[in-house]
Design a protein around this nucleic acid. Structure first.
Length: 421
RNA sequence: GCGACCGUAGCUCAGCUGGUUAGAGCAUCGGUUUGUGGUACCGAGGGUCGCGGGUUCAAGUCCCGUCGGUCGCCCCA
């Protein structure tokens, strides 16, 4: 079946209706992001490996086994970005964006993770990303969440999506809670699943969102973070939730929500749906006050989130509701080689007037008209020997099945009279 | 990385318990007096049956491996 080179596993050739959905997600994000005054940035798809290794956490699966890491010809170790945040923080430092802090940034593009592909999960996939860097105000967290909420509404996919919210507290909170969890789970070792025993050593917080029913009892009896929140941490969380309530964004407290990446503090959140099988998370993020410091910069508080474009696109309304991919109102049909030059001249004039057109050259006139009808073209400009001799094109209006003759140099102004956009 | 299912024309699939030159629909291309419409009719091209090995007189059909896909686990957007 297959001829020639194969597409790389976990990558996609996006085309047609799927490409339209994809574009709609990006366009909507771009529109909403402006409403919240986030500025657009473009960043490299690869960075020095240490940018990700130091920020994401050496023990996470992403860093330990999912990165595309390779030496370049100069011997430096580079990595295709597995997420946006680390690269944005690196840029924040190397471009001196501190002087603009707090700064609101938005971007989107491909990210890469060496994972086993399945529904809604790819090796090259695409994310939307929004970050606010340089403020420790809970208002920033609120703004980001309200932005996310509005994005989902404008995409028309907020139905069935719930915002799950949690706090991971500040550093002292997190350390105390973590220690309590470790001793709790150590005491219940015998009740845990094999997976969770591994987590206990590597990333004990992760046991909390285990799907294995065997872990339930130990998880249910585990200490809650609320018992360890410092007054500052709980005041922070209270201001975030209060802000969401004022903005009328509904949310659910999920005390077992933790983040996979090590750099998160305080607010952690996920917009989750049940419509995407195992890949329920559609947009996720939180506050990462320690990350920039970890990269060697000054202490810099920040918040952000990322959303999977493919996952959002999959939730979009089915094809019929979408507008046609390409709207070409006019088509030019030269009949015979002699008509070619005139066809090019006419088509160019149409495009310079600001309208899309295509020149159909293949097949007999009947086939071409059939093709045009199929694609909902409204006007066909036919140019053959008769027309060349008369200096007038046959302009056929496909909808009303009527046609008339118009001199070549008057076609554009006849079809689109000035002032009638 | 683990488990289950799947892999036949560009697309969607049929091919019964292994048996002559592998089929259909859609799409494509051509034709129905080299110039007038989504229809109709006629015809054509297009397949190393993912790939490699094995069993058998004989394999698209059975077995093993491999690659790819799907779903789940892990992880995550």
């Amino acid at each position: 079946m297959s001829k020639g080179p194969q597409r790389i596993r976990g990558t996609q050739d996006i085309w047609g209706e799927e490409a339209d959905r994809f574009a709609r997600v990006v366009e909507t994000f771009d529109r909403v992001r402006r409403l919240y005054a986030f500025q657009r940035i473009e960043l490299p798809v690869f960075e020095a490996t240490e940018v990700f290794a130091r920020s994401i956490g050496e023990t996470t699966d992403i860093v330990s086994k999912e990165m595309y890491t390779f030496p370049d010809r100069g011997g430096d170790s580079l990595t295709l970005r597995p997420e946006f945040t680390a690269g944005i923080c690196r840029a924040y430092l190397s471009e001196g964006w501190q002087q603009h802090a707090p700064i609101r940034l938005a971007t989107h593009g491909p990210v890469f993770r060496y994972e086993r592909p399945q529904k809604g999960r790819f090796r090259q996939f695409h994310q939307l990303d929004a970050e606010i860097i340089g403020t420790d105000s809970p208002l920033a967290d609120v703004e980001l969440l309200v932005l996310a909420d509005q994005l989902l509404h404008q995409l028309g996919i907020s139905e069935g999506v719930t915002l799950q919210l949690n706090t991971l507290g500040d550093a002292p909170t997190r350390d105390a809670w973590r220690a309590a969890l470790v001793s709790h789970f150590e005491a219940h070792r015998s009740e845990l699943s094999e997976d969770s025993l591994v987590r206990l050593a590597k990333n004990p917080l992760r046991i909390l969102d285990s799907k294995d029913p065997r872990d339930r009892p130990a998880v249910d009896s585990a200490p809650s973070i609320d018992e360890f929140l410092t007054p500052e941490a709980s005041a922070f969380f209270a201001r975030v939730t209060a802000g969401l309530n004022v903005a009328d964004v509904s949310w659910t407290r999920n005390p077992r929500l933790v983040r996979g990446l090590d750099y998160y503090r305080h607010t952690a959140f996920e917009f989750v749906t049940d419509r995407l099988g195992a890949q329920g998370t559609v947009l996720a993020g939180g506050r990462y006050d320690g990350l920039i410091e970890g990269l060697g910069g000054p202490h810099t508080p920040a918040v952000g989130w990322a959303a999977g474009i493919e996952r959002l696109a999959m939730m979009l309304t089915p094809p019929p509701a979408l507008p046609p991919a390409i709207d070409v109102p006019v088509v030019v049909m030269p009949v015979g080689d002699a008509a070619e030059a005139t066809a090019i001249r006419v088509a160019t004039a149409v495009r310079r007037r600001g309208f899309a057109t295509e020149i159909y050259t293949r097949g007999n006139l009947k086939k071409r008209l059939a093709r045009a009808s199929e694609r909902l073209v409204s006007t066909a400009i036919i140019i053959g020997d008769d027309e060349l001799e008369a200096g007038q094109a046959t302009v056929r209006h496909l909808r009303i099945q009527q046609q008339d003759r118009i001199p070549f140099d008057r076609i554009v102004e006849q079809l689109w009279p000035t002032g009638d956009e």
